[in-house]
């Protein structure tokens, strides 16, 4: 391959990123790069800055210093360029955040129609295909409140995929779910990972991290404390913070 080929350079690069909320230093000199097709799982104790990191990547949260590059370009600060960037980065939230006044299919077609200016008919066709893929095509005409949590989260994943994003961010996608619904969402995520989607996943699901991730990143107090391939990380965590954290979550 030619040197400098776009497929060689990482898709997401964070360079010395700092974030303050007032006096609170939430991200401290964070350096992270995510390759194309790579699945990175971010773990760490509550309040360590995982959500903030995730949200900074599509600029739902601004950063105080440092630089974030997506697909070779610095994140735009605002306006249409920022909106365009966001449409390239799918985001899945802990609380689903499906548009409550729109049906499931409308949720999935809204972005394609309003942002990408697709024809409604085409958007609906592709929307139905996506809903089939996540296994809820039969719920297309219902409103979010009529669906179970697991179904809502799968719809939210379909909504993000409808924009044909280059990467997907997941912020604790299964934390708000009843235990019996966690599996169905993780299955969808695992199949996405297999299909080569670039993913940054904040999660406490260690099974998912083991099976689907290329790399595990451990955060504490706003810092990336350590990162490793999952087998390595779970077997031999190097830092005391990571050992301590793992001992707490793996015992139950």
């Amino acid at each position: 391959m030619v040197a400098g080929d776009a497929s060689q350079e990482p898709l997401i690069v964070l360079d010395k990123v700092n974030k303050f909320f007032g006096d609170l230093h939430v991200l401290r000199d964070v350096d992270l790069s995510v390759g194309r097709g790579e699945v990175v799982v971010v773990i760490g104790p509550s309040g360590s800055g995982k959500s903030t990191l995730c949200r900074a990547i599509n600029r739902l949260e601004t950063i105080s210093s440092g630089q974030i590059t997506f697909d070779g370009k610095a994140l735009p600060a605002e306006g249409r360029a920022l909106a365009r960037l966001r449409s390239d980065v799918g985001m899945v939230f802990q609380s689903f955040n499906l548009f409550a006044h729109k049906t499931i299919l409308e949720n999935v077609t809204l972005g394609p129609i309003k942002v990408r200016k697709d024809k409604p008919e085409e958007a609906r066709k592709r929307g139905m295909t996506l809903l089939e893929r996540v296994g809820i095509a039969n719920q297309a005409g219902k409103y979010p409140a009529q669906l179970s949590g697991g179904q809502q989260q799968r719809a939210a994943i379909a909504r993000a995929l409808a924009m044909q994003p280059k990467a997907m961010l997941f912020d604790e996608p299964t934390s708000a779910l009843d235990p019996e619904m966690v599996g169905e969402v993780l299955d969808v995520m695992t199949s996405l990972a297999r299909d080569g989607m670039t993913m940054v996943v904040v999660t406490h699901e260690m099974g998912f991290a083991r099976h689907a991730a290329n790399r595990v990143v451990f955060m504490a107090d706003g810092q990336l404390v350590e990162q490793a391939e999952p087998g390595e990380f779970f077997a031999n965590p190097r830092s005391d913070r990571a050992k301590d954290f793992l001992s707490k979550i793996l015992t139950h």
Binding site: G79, A83, R86, F93, N97, F99, A100, L110, V115, A160
Partner: peptide
């Protein structure tokens, strides 16, 4: 809920689209 506007921004809607398509219709109801 703030998450509604966040989700709208996250799929690439502009501020005014977010307001017109997602927030105001729900606020109006």
């Amino acid at each position: 809920p703030a998450g509604q506007a966040e989700a709208a921004r996250a799929i690439g809607l502009t501020f005014s689209q977010t307001l017109r398509i997602v927030v105001l219709p729900q606020a109006g109801r």
